[in-house]
């Protein structure tokens, strides 16, 4: 049996020893930033470093204190809502956690707010991620 899916968006991704890297545009209170984020389907939330949260104009510590479990213990963050783009696809009011402390430097793209709203294809060999809105 053969299954076929069609997609409307193609993202060029990258792969390093830490995982799959996706270009992500964060649209925040005072500016947009285009960042490389590690796609982590095991993570509930997207997580940003503290320095990036400050730079984007978030009043970081006004967010909802949210502890995240990680393999190495609990990580303290503040939960905010913002808009991000994957290619042309816009996801508004997505929950994003901003690290409380400055020693976390990576951007992680978690599941919440977008993954259930899309159809998703991945061809790591070609460095390509395919996306469509679920109801397109």
């Amino acid at each position: 049996m053969t299954y076929r899916l069609e997609f409307s968006t193609l993202l060029k991704i990258a792969l390093d020893e830490n995982g799959l890297i996706v270009p992500l545009t964060i649209s925040a209170p005072i500016k947009d930033r285009q960042i490389q984020a590690y796609f982590d389907s095991g993570a509930t939330y997207t997580v940003l470093p503290r320095w990036l949260g400050d730079d984007l104009g978030f009043d970081v510590e006004s967010g909802t204190p949210t502890n995240l479990r990680t393999g190495s213990g609990v990580m303290q963050t503040y939960l905010h809502y913002t808009t991000f783009f994957l290619g042309e696809l816009s996801f508004g009011d997505v929950p994003v956690c901003i690290a409380k402390y400055h020693d976390f430097n990576r951007c992680l793209l978690g599941r919440e707010g977008w993954l259930q709203a899309v159809r998703f294809g991945l061809v790591t060999y070609d460095n390509q991620m395919y996306l469509s809105l679920y109801d397109e």
Binding site: A14, S90, F91, G113, L133
Partner: peptide, 17 residues
Amino acid sequence: VRVSRVPGKARDFSLEQ
């Protein structure tokens, strides 16, 4: 969460990647 398509928003990051 509000989801939509914004034509023209996509920036091609192939060279950077």
